[in-house]
Design a protein around this nucleic acid. Structure first.
Lengths: 335, 335
DNA sequence: TCTCCTCCTGAGAGCGCTCTCACACTGAGA
DNA sequence: TCTCAGTGTGAGAGCGCTCTCAGGAGGAGA
């Protein structure tokens, strides 16, 4: 081999094909070139096994072909609770793969990692950022927005920074759940709400309230934090507050599962004594005992749509800043 | 501002601090420099908000500071089943964060993504690769090994390519589970094995067999694929094969949960009629009904150790190619 | 005072790519 | 035959950094 050690470069391909570096670059990037040089270059590329040097390209184009997915939950909780993040990762990764971008995962558990992410984004190590699971007080969205890099959130960010987001119809889904309970003859319908510093928590409670309000029933509310244990605790609380309740809408499947457990412990039968509806439609719901009636949200679609939006922004296109995906009631045996 | 538009460069910092580019570079990289230039440079960096350009640095150093985590499961299944991957991601990300590396997530579902990953790795877009959840026939490990890039696997890869790996004591854990069942007076102990093209499936079955063999009991085996549904099916099969069995060791918590369901459906009480032991100690185990006795594997540790090993390799250090982490029996109510 | 060694510093090359710009070449129209 | 578009191509600069190498300053030893 005449060439020096190491990977082949544009230069060596050009030499072999008998053209200039610029022409090889054109072929690689799909620009206009005569049939004959095209063929010569392609052959040289194959023979040499040439692959463009990503860093060199980034240096001049200012594109990194990297998209960050930032999960600002505490590192320990991110993946352990429900199936939401995995689903989002899945959807995101499908779209990025098609666009030939890579997914950089950043877990923003500690303050230190917060700072690190900000630095990394500000330094344009990535072309865009996907931000999931926002809490109310989180300063990260605003900080990232200030860097001027495209940011797309999962759910409408609380606080004053307007950022494009992809959400689901939490309110409509919750209302549909409550209406289902009303339609099946339930009269004292409680809810286990999610954390009130997250949109999913806030809007699902609002949906519950509005549907109940329409039927002039009174609301019975306990608040959890989307975890199973909090669902157990909240259900106990509700039973203590109103032993006569005959239905409960939980703002997550995990909390619904906790409710099932607490109800079983309290000797209530589901759905005979108390009907239970969850939210999310994760695997948990299908495998619960009894299988859970729940509100499905299209998790993978959320990921896909977030990725599509951030790619459009990164490409300089304008986008509709708000996407709301539909939710759908899935009736199983618990209600 | 005197400087041109865009982010500050080494050049502009140097100008402001009244030193050369080389000196600024030394400060940034922590090399020897006099106190006074040190201070001047640091001030200039602060005032300008300078952050090194990653691409430019990569171009010359040949380091990308990126580590890939490749999950070669089918894209749909990766995250949906158990809590294994999330845990690994968590551990990996903790270590990478400390080392100031970024995590690139690559889901290798389709053949196309396989090819894309190989190309990306061969082109040295990453400094190292972490390979999780290998199946027997997977050609990816060998292909990646050929690129000369550091690769660390989760579990000993099947096939002829010797690669460094971080595994757990599957055999010992399974044996401990079976011994516990024997010690508590069980005599007809079945197993729901995992897929036999994965080390975790193979070794856990081997552990079951060896412990049983030592006590000269006969083995009763059904094979699942680590999913809940397969656990249900396998348990039904086992009950049909041997209605008198009084214990079952499942090679994953998810399959154990499936077994619980099938046992309940068949009217058997757990642990009174049939004792059940799982493997993994995921959240599922704690929340099962009854709470699952299971073999804990230190999932986060696996991730951490994999990351540490790949970083060492990437730094040119030699490593012990094999790490086996201990497993531990956690006794709850199901056995 | 002179030499030698040590330590810090700056100049400059070069990493592999893209992209502008000017030039050559073709064929159409005058 | 000459001009003028129009098209493809090559030369060369430059992206922002690291790193080698030579030179200059300062102190120690003769």
């Amino acid at each position: 081999m005449g060439r020096a050690a190491g990977r082949p470069t544009l230069e060596s391909v050009a030499a072999r094909a008998g053209v200039s570096r610029a022409t090889v670059s054109r072929v690689v990037n799909g620009l206009a070139v005569t049939e004959s040089s095209q063929a010569a270059v392609r052959r040289a590329i194959d023979e040499l096994g040439y692959v463009p040097n990503h860093a060199a390209r980034t240096l001049v184009t200012q594109r990194t072909d990297l998209i960050a997915l930032v999960l600002p939950e505490s590192t320990d909780r991110v993946f352990s609770d429900d199936q939401f993040f995995p689903g989002v990762v899945n959807g995101v990764s499908q779209v990025l793969e098609q666009a030939d971008k890579q997914l950089v995962l950043m877990l923003a558990g500690s303050a230190a990692s917060h700072a690190r992410i900000e630095r990394s984004v500000a330094a344009r190590h990535v072309d865009g950022v996907l931000l999931a699971s926002l809490h109310g007080a989180d300063p990260l969205p605003a900080a990232l927005a200030r860097t001027g890099i495209p940011v797309v959130c999962n759910e409408r960010p609380l606080g004053s920074t307007p950022l494009p987001y992809v959400g689901v119809d939490n309110k409509g889904g919750a209302a549909a759940a409550v209406r289902h309970l009303l339609d099946t003859g339930r009269t004292r319908i409680a809810t286990i709400a999610g954390p009130q510093d997250m949109i999913a928590g806030i809007d699902r409670l609002a949906g519950y309230r509005s549907a109940l309000h329409d039927s002039s029933r009174r609301s019975i509310v306990a608040v959890g934090d989307f975890t199973l244990d909090s669902g157990v605790a909240a259900m106990r609380q509700l039973l203590a507050d109103d032993p006569g309740l005959d239905a409960v809408f939980a703002a997550s499947d995990l909390m619904a599962q906790g409710a099932l457990k607490a109800l079983r412990d309290a000797g209530r039968r589901v759905p005979d004594d108390v009907a239970v509806v969850g939210f999310d439609d994760t695997v948990i719901a299908r495998h619960a005992d009894p299988p859970l009636t729940t509100v499905r949200q299209p998790i993978i679609q959320i990921g896909r749509q977030m990725a599509r939006q951030v790619l459009r922004l990164a490409a300089g296109e304008r986008i509709e800043p708000t996407t709301t995906l539909p939710t759908e009631l899935v009736v199983r045996q618990s209600a």
